[in-house]
Design a binder for these strands. Structure first.
Length: 555
RNA sequence: UGGGGCGUGGCCAAGCGGUAAGGCACCGGAUUUUGAUUCCGGCAUUCCCAGGUUCGAUCCCUGGCGCCCCAACCA
């Protein structure tokens, strides 16, 4: 637990914890992040991770990483490894406190037996359908199972047989004996154990009965001495059950606290949907840079610190909230602006010939890696008579506020000279194919001698020296703010979320290392892809654009 | 006539009976060899609505309205 940012404001959870500490209800703070290893972590998990580890850090306590692996049919080792990597990458350290629900299976079994002996649990032998029918509905109470009054002895024997593998899947379950007419559906004799002849990623074939979430989670927390068990709002109705088990078992009672889960505009967050996007190849894997997964964002080039800032910035509450994607992007820019080296790259080239520079002359210009941080050094930028500039930086008939290049106009070449557009060359279709410009060679590092101002500054690369690299321009994965409001969320997919193109970049960029992020000046931040880049042949992912008030003015 | 939650500016969010923090967005203006960054300044007489209690209510009470969650042998 190392990198928690300073809290910007209070929230209800901090208030609860502070009160608990002051009143003496608790003498320390232990939290946990309890993912089920059935998929990759997404930005919603990041919120929970920052919260749990952040709180532990603030209160000098600790946060456990615990895998809630109680359903062997959905869980895999691949996922536990990916989750560990993601949590660590986010900047959090669970130290020795790595746990698995499956480590507690034996203890959980003993507790189930204890409940049976106390007459608080029984073996149900109806079918799943019958159980469902007898549970009643939201407005009508359920009815007691015909097996509800089996003797303790019979229950004990049956449960043991369940454990021994004497029954096929689905034939029996162990249920808590609570109240079939409770207005809280979770209390209508919830299932504690089901029979599953499935191979578990850690316990193998040792067990063929597995505990349900409700029977496992609170006890797991209790075993670990968790003081504050923080989860999302949909578990609110489970809290009475969570407490019921701890109370019946008479074991250490953590406090469950619920908060509102994160909703991000233009994205979906459910694991089921993310899995579908991956399986049906709408994206290229869990770590596709368009995915809201931690691994996707990492590959996209989002710094871990930006995600932490984001989680702190959005706050924690109990009101359902929708955060705009732009908030996340802004955190990314804030972080990258500080650290990313500046480079020049042209994505959509237009040729420019400097008529008053000899064709055989090459100048090695010096340009800073970061204009606000000279200590970060410089790189050299070759300049010659043939350049490429961005097509968008020229307009034949520009509006008044346009201060880039146009016929007869002047502009500053970033880190180089001021040039003037003398001539516009077109092809047979009337398409502009080249600009012929003259440079004021006395403007390197200074303004024109006559003192006149040149407002526009554009980036460029030397045609002869420019290197061609692959670039992936990413946009939001979905077109709709809330993809779930579409008839089918897949219909809200943005067909242009990925555009593969090429860029002409300054030579120094060929040395970019996988995962390294640069600001292509005036364009955006780009990160060398960690999978597809090769030595001397980087592939760049557009991480995020720069803020663009000109684009806004045009719109 | 099921239960549990939530409702503060465009988006988040503090506040917990004493007269609306902060961030993001937005709008001005300054600096700038990135229309970026940075920097200044502006931005809720009002807290879902209506009553009530109180000297005083976003905070307490009553009644509405709106939204979210719950009927897996998932977590």
């Amino acid at each position: 637990m190392s990198t928690a940012e300073t809290p910007s404001s209070s929230n209800f959870i901090r208030t609860i914890i502070t009160d608990d500490l002051e009143s003496g209800k608790r003498d320390r703070v232990i939290t946990r992040f309890p993912p089920e290893p059935n998929g990759y972590l997404h930005i919603g998990h990041a919120k929970s991770i920052c919260l749990n580890f952040g709180l532990a850090d603030e209160y000098k306590g600790r946060c456990n990483l615990r895998f809630d692996d109680t359903n062997p049919t959905k869980e895999e080792d691949e996922y536990v490894e990916a989750i560990k990597e993601d949590v660590a990458w986010l900047g959090f350290d669970w130290g020795e406190h790595l746990y698995f629900a499956s480590d507690y299976f034996a203890q959980l079994y003993l507790w189930a037996v204890q409940l049976i002996k106390a007459g608080k649990a029984y073996v149900e032998s109806q079918t799943a359908e019958q159980v469902r029918e007898n549970r009643g509905t939201l407005t009508h109470p359920g009815v007691d199972s015909p097996y509800r009054d089996r003797s303790v002895e019979e229950n004990l024997e049956l449960f043991e047989q369940m454990k021994n593998g004497d029954f096929p899947d689905g034939t029996h379950i162990l249920r808590a004996k609570i109240d079939m007419s409770s207005p809280n559906m979770n209390l209508r004799d919830p299932a504690l154990y089901r029979i599953l002849h499935a191979h578990h990623h850690r316990t193998g074939d040792t067990w063929c009965i597995y505990p349900m979430y409700d029977f496992a989670h609170g006890q797991e927390d209790s075993i670990e001495g968790v003081t504050h068990s923080i989860c999302t709002l949909e578990f609110e109705d489970h809290r009475p059950l969570y407490e019921w088990f701890l109370n019946e078992l008479e074991i250490f009672a953590p406090q469950q606290i619920e908060f509102a889960r994160l909703n991000l505009s233009y994205t979906v967050m459910s694991k089921r949907k993310l899995l579908q996007l991956v399986n049906e190849k709408h994206v290229n894997g869990w770590d596709d840079p368009r995915m809201p997964t931690v691994s996707g964002m990492r590959r996209r080039g989002y710094p871990a610190a930006a995600i932490r800032t984001f989680c702190e910035r959005i706050g924690v509450g109990r009101a359902a909230s929708w955060i705009d994607l732009s908030v996340l992007e802004d955190c990314v820019r804030e972080q990258l602006n500080e650290s990313a080296f500046r480079r020049q790259a042209v994505l959509n080239p237009l040729k420019v010939t400097i008529t008053n520079v000899p064709a055989d002359r090459v100048e090695e210009l010096v340009a800073p890696n970061h204009p606000q941080q000279p200590e970060l050094g410089n790189r050299t930028l070759p300049f010659s008579n043939e350049l490429y500039i961005e097509r968008d930086d020229f307009m034949e008939d520009p509006p008044k506020k346009f201060f880039r290049l146009g016929p007869g106009r002047e502009v500053r070449l970033r880190n180089a000279y001021i040039i003037k557009c003398d001539e516009v060359l077109k092809d047979d279709n009337g398409e502009v194919i080249e600009l012929r410009c003259s440079a004021d060679l006395d403007t390197l590092g200074k303004n024109p001698a006559d003192g006149h101002k040149v407002k526009g500054i554009i980036h460029w690369v030397s045609a002869r020296h420019a290197q061609k690299v692959a670039v992936r321009v990413y946009d939001r994965l979905f077109n709709r703010e809330n993809p779930d409001k579409a008839e089918n969320y897949l219909q809200a997919l943005n067909p242009e979320s990925l555009q593969e193109t090429e860029a002409l970049v300054e030579p120094s960029l060929l040395q970019a290392k996988p995962g390294e992020t640069f600001q292509f000046e005036r364009v955006g931040y780009f990160t060398a892809d960690s999978k597809d880049s090769q030595a001397g042949k980087p592939v760049f992912n557009r991480t995020v654009t720069l803020r663009d008030t000109w684009a806004k003015m045009k719109a």
